[in-house]
Simulated assay, not measured.
Amino acid sequence: MAQRESTGSGHGPRPDKTALLCLGMVLLFSPLAALCLLPVLLLLSCTGVPLWLGYGVWALSACLYGLRPVQLALARLLWPVRHPFPAEQQRLDVVWAEVLGRAAVSERRFRIWVVDLADVNAHCVGRDLICVTTGALAELGDRELAGVLAHELGHHLRMHTAAAAFLVWVLLPLQAVALIGTGFGVPLAAFAGWLSGFEFAPGIKRAALLALSRLETAVRAGFAAPGMLAFAVKNAASRRAEYQVDAYAVDLGFGAELLSALRWFEACAPPAAAQPLVPGPRRARHAAVRVPRPTHPPLERRMARIAARVAACAAAEDTLLP
């Protein structure tokens, strides 16, 4: 595909509607998150820590995420991330230079590091870090790698990752409340298991077990409801963001390359179980597979949209030819 003119991203990262939605949700859910923190901070206040100091530390911890050292520390905590080896760096420099050239973006603004994982994948961290797995470097050709990097660059230029990270940080107290609800549900489940071992009137026993099961579900759902609502909106915004940056990669002239990479994912990636709506404290790993995840639309739908946009761009170019 012929190289296109700059899409206007040379002005630097700017939040789009998806990023602004996440930041708006930060303001919306901050009071609820603060309320969830209140019991813990009240306990701390008994030791002499004032409430304003506890809330100040919480707010400051969210603001610290914008600092490069903090982002890098979190990346190292979640993934086996490292600087590229010389051979990897040489290849990445060539591919990345072409992507940045079409986007009219300064090379100094973003960094690419490598994650020692066999999964074929790439993802953004913070404001300026892109992580590429060793599996992606081994399996993808330069064309496909360029398409994937153009996609990730679109996330950074639209500030999707930074805004979503702030939102996740604010929602951590809501996740803690969901875990508390799970804890309250454990005794109910244990009591139901104990009761099922007794023999008495079948009708009464069945009704009692059903009531306990529904009560356990209600307790868990009641505590998890705020977090589930927040993450449902966040995940919907994330799915929209995937379509947006796919379109951005196409407009840069990497549509065929990105489509080729996604077809490779479709053909070769192993199936994966769907992730929970509210993330748990697990190691952060993901791969583009057939099974849709809460944060990603179905792979087939993404490829169909990319193919349609590539065809539309090609048709528009043909009409401009003499």
Rank of each mutant, 00 (worst) to 15 (best):
M1T: 09
R4D: 02
E5C: 07
G8V: 14
G12T: 00
D16Y: 02
A19P: 12
L20I: 10
M25E: 13
L27Y: 02
L28Q: 04
L35V: 08
P39C: 01
L44F: 15
W52G: 00
W52Q: 05
L53G: 00
G56F: 05
A62F: 10
C63D: 00
L64G: 00
L67V: 01
P69E: 04
V70I: 13
L74K: 04
L78R: 08
W79E: 05
Q90C: 09
Q90H: 13
R91G: 05
V94M: 12
V95S: 06
W96E: 14
L100P: 11
G101N: 06
A103E: 10
A104H: 15
V105M: 10
V105F: 08
V105C: 14
V105I: 14
E107P: 13
F110A: 10
F110P: 12
I112T: 10
W113K: 11
D119H: 12
D119A: 13
N121M: 12
A122S: 08
V125T: 07
G126Q: 11
L129Y: 08
V132C: 01
T133N: 06
T134A: 13
A136Q: 10
L137P: 03
E139M: 07
R143L: 04
E144S: 09
L145I: 08
V148S: 00
L149Y: 08
H160C: 09
T161Q: 12
A162S: 08
A162N: 04
L167G: 06
V168Y: 01
L174I: 04
L174H: 10
L174T: 01
A178E: 05
I180Q: 00
G185I: 01
P187M: 09
A190Q: 11
W194T: 11
S196N: 13
F200P: 02
P202Y: 04
G203S: 10
A207R: 05
A207T: 02
L209Q: 06
A211H: 02
L212Q: 00
S213N: 04
T217L: 09
A221E: 13
M228E: 15
A230T: 04
A232C: 15
N235H: 15
V245Q: 15
D246K: 07
D246L: 14
A247C: 04
Y248S: 08
L252E: 09
L252T: 07
L258P: 03
L259Q: 13
L262E: 08
L262T: 03
W264N: 02
F265Y: 12
E266L: 11
C268D: 15
A272G: 14
Q275C: 07
P276N: 07
L277P: 05
P279E: 11
R283A: 12
R285M: 11
R285K: 11
V289K: 02
R293C: 07
T295V: 14
P297M: 03
M303I: 01
I306S: 03
I306Y: 09
A307T: 02
A311Q: 14
A312E: 14
C313G: 03
D318R: 15
T319P: 00
L321D: 14
